[in-house]
């Protein structure tokens, strides 16, 4: 019941602080990362929850859910949410990825998956089939609290983040 109350309080705060954001400056260059390097971002101190989203410009459900991810970041960043975006675009598609990130108002560092697919997939979670998008939610201790393949709605993402921020 405590979790429910905390979630309701968090949702309430989110709804009152949510606001639209205008076009961003040009998105920073994407830094190449392995799965280990992504997990280092999870373990960096200071976050109460970390969302890793693996996406690609050619992935329609990735593009569809992207505005929801950005909205979630705007709503929860001050309360400790860290959003780690990892593009799975091919190396020769990085400019297209940057254009998309700029359109979406991304003005913070994001990443580009590098190395063999299977090492990257299993490095993040062996349950992940490799389908995109993939979203992983970690708590403040760096423990994986939830994992989803395919498009996720803002409501579900919010509930998973609130749960990760709620002490077990």
């Amino acid at each position: 019941m405590l979790g429910v109350l905390l979630a309701m309080v968090a949702c309430g705060r989110a709804s009152t602080t949510s606001k639209a954001q205008g076009p961003a400056t040009e998105a920073p260059a994407l830094a190449a990362v392995t799965a280990d390097q992504v997990l280092q971002k999870v373990r960096e101190p200071g976050a109460k929850a970390v969302v890793i989203n693996v996406w690609a410009t050619w992935c329609t459900p990735c593009r569809e859910e992207f505005p929801d991810l950005m909205q979630l970041r705007r709503e929860y960043e001050r309360r400790g949410l860290r959003l780690v975006l990892v593009s799975a675009d091919f190396p020769d598609q990085t400019e297209e990825a940057r254009r998309f990130l700029t359109q979406q108002g991304v003005d913070f560092p994001t990443f580009l998956k590098t190395g063999k697919d299977m090492e990257f997939i299993n490095g993040l979670d062996e349950r992940w089939s490799g389908a995109l998008p993939a979203t992983f939610v970690y708590d403040a201790r760096g423990a994986l609290r939830s994992f989803r393949e395919g498009r996720t709605t803002h409501a579900v993402m919010e509930s998973l983040v609130v749960a990760a921020m709620t002490p077990q």
Partner: peptide
Amino acid sequence: SLLACAALAMTLTSAA
């Protein structure tokens, strides 16, 4: 909206 959040929170575990 409040009810929607409450419902989401209550179904959180099963959804995940």
